[in-house]
């Protein structure tokens, strides 16, 4: 139970598992990702603090507002950022302090969806034609990956018979159904972050960064940071829900890094999928697979 005062909640949200911690973690994770990408391509790669430099540079750049933009254009990156910080606070609090409330996994799922929704709202309010192409692709992506994502998350919920994140973390077992749905969750979260096999909404060479095209300065920095934090949450989410997140801190870090490396390798060995291929992949490939894993889970009870 989180029966704590306002000050304690603020500390949780702003300092330790929330804002500050996620910021530092996302920079480290971004470094590992970019360096590994570079080494896989036989390059040298950027320095350790590259993402920090990028963020500070964007903070100090001029912000240009499009002529037709309304207030959503400015508000939506902030709302997306705040919700991703809240999601990371809930997840890391459950992992580190073993605290939570009933139904927090549902809250977490909804909070993870808000950044993409906000990106859709903000980009479509900019009035740019190319941004609207990106928006239409992002909506199709949202429709395609959410269905297998929810279905795959049914497996740990059915296994532990609980909607509480802490119960799922402490009581999960490794089975075939569990591993299948872990793979589906990794791939869906990859699409949620918009990294390479599923980055059709912000394809740089094709539609000139798509949804991000009109964003500049610290608004762009906030969106990039939101994506980085979401990226650093994927391994933590998968490890804690499917692979015993609470047993041992060292083991947790090893599992976290393994999933991170796996995601980076997937990202570097696959080309960008077209939007119709993405939809087909999730609806005809991943969704039946997630149904099979749910059925397996129910049968093995």
């Amino acid at each position: 139970m989180l029966e704590v005062g306002l000050l304690n909640s603020l500390f949780l949200y702003l300092i330790f598992p929330g804002l500050f911690f996620s910021f530092i973690l996302s920079i480290l994770v971004g470094y590992i990702d970019r360096k590994l990408t570079a080494r896989l391509q036989y390059r040298e790669g950027p320095p350790l603090l590259q993402n920090l430099y990028d963020f500070f540079k964007l903070l100090n750049k001029e912000v240009i507002l499009p002529e037709n933009a309304n207030v959503l254009f400015i508000l939506s990156p902030f709302i997306g950022f705040a919700s991703i910080i809240l999601a990371s606070t809930i997840l890391w609090t459950a992992i580190f302090f073993k605290k939570g409330f009933v139904g927090d996994i549902i809250v977490l799922i909804y909070l993870l969806t808000i950044p993409s929704l906000m990106l859709i709202l903000g980009a479509s309010s900019s009035g740019n034609i190319i941004a609207s192409i990106g928006v239409s692709r992002e909506i199709k992506m949202l429709l395609s990956y959410e269905l297998p994502f929810f279905t795959a998350l049914l497996v740990p919920i059915l296994q532990t018979k609980s909607f509480k994140l802490l119960d799922i973390i402490q009581n999960n077992v490794v089975s075939l159904a569990n591993i299948i749905s872990a793979i589906i969750v990794i791939i869906s979260l990859q699409a949620k972050t918009g990294i390479v096999p599923f980055d059709a909404p912000e394809a740089e060479t094709e539609i000139a960064s798509g949804i991000l095209i009109e964003y500049s300065g610290f608004l762009l920095g906030l969106i990039k940071l939101t994506k980085q934090i979401l990226f650093s949450l994927i391994p933590a989410f998968v490890v804690s829900i499917f692979f015993f997140g609470d047993r041992n801190l060292i083991l947790f870090i090893i599992k976290y890094l393994t999933i991170l490396v796996l995601i980076t390798i997937i990202r570097n060995t696959n080309p960008r999928l077209k939007i119709n291929q993405t939809l087909k992949f999730f609806w005809y490939g991943m969704f039946p697979l997630s149904l099979i894993s749910v059925i397996l889970c129910v049968i093995s009870k």
Binding site: A38, R43, E44, P47, Q50, A203, E204, A208
Partner: peptide, 21 residues
């Protein structure tokens, strides 16, 4: 390309002029 690799210095190509330095 890997031989010269400007990403060492943090330089990267972007798709939109709004992101450019």
């Amino acid at each position: 390309t890997p031989k010269y690799d400007l990403e060492r210095f943090g330089i990267q190509l972007v798709g939109s002029i709004r992101h450019a330095d």
